[in-house]
Amino acid sequence: MKNRKVRKMWLLVIAAGLVISFAACTPGRTAERSASGSAAQLEYPVKNVTFIIPYSAGGTADTVGRLLAQHLSQILDINITCVNKAGASGEIGSLELINSRKDGSVIGTMNIPDFIISDIVNPQFEFDLEKDAEFIAAFNNTPFSYFAPAKGDLNTWDKFVAYAKAHPGEVTVGEGGIAHRILAAAVMDKFGIQFTTVNFAGASETVAALLGGHVSAASSGNQRLVEFTSGGCMPIIWEGKTKPEGFPDCALFSDYGMDASFLGVGNTVVAPKGVPENVITVLEAACAQIANSSDFGERMRNLGYDYTSLVGVKDIMETLRKQKATISAICEKYADRILSNG
């Protein structure tokens, strides 16, 4: 009697397990099936599209990604479901994106320059800029700048450089990721100085570290300007064509003949390589419409981004190749400084 009950229980458990595993397997199987017939022309747009965001919910990449998806779904009149596949600086979600169905039913966003850097520094990131993805559009190009306490000893770039020259390695610069260390390597190279980068988990913690006075300066995205200034800090060198709002005396990288824009953060619309031509055409047209709408640009500027838009696979690839070459050169020269933090 009892044995039967136990057996019944096991049966239920196994049945439940089967249902789940079946549910979990389904997308994978469809992917295989459609991959084989990808070359043919497909009717596009399809009704339901999955939009992969390789970052966790709530981050800036997620916010922009969701806005992009929202605009695309309105323009194309389709349902777009956003899926966050976070992990390993976006590497996991990006790999999933480029390896998914090649029929336009799975698209997504990837952040420039994250995937370029991962491609260069991480041999396990199996991604080829030329062979794996179609970059349909790129929005925003928000570069990094340096910030320091307004009332401190390093509140101008000249003071910063002079101090770092006199005391090599003693200035600590907080940063939120490997891209900032690449910029740091380029800055040290350009100005012939040495300082120490201190890695923090993301931009928020970097802001907190500088506001709390735990580091002497910080390298952070231009969109964080307000957070720094309202906490008593100011930009000391700025990447951009114009000076930051409210700081007419702030130095620009271009004043010293340096261009730090190759690390500007951009949000792309990506489809896996091998999607039919007509899918790309439809998506390009939709992205062009987003780029022309004043609403999207306005919202990006409100978030503090340097808004730019670039639509079209060819143009984007050209800029990406240039970026990759510049970043590669720095990474090769200063691999130890960039990779071995502590």
Binding site: E170, T172, F195, T196, V198, N199, F200, H214, N341, G342
Partner: peptide, 13 residues
């Protein structure tokens, strides 16, 4: 992470 950060900052100083 905070041990490594502390170590980096201490070394810099």
């Amino acid at each position: 992470e905070n041990f490594r950060r502390s170590l980096i900052i201490a070394t810099a100083q």
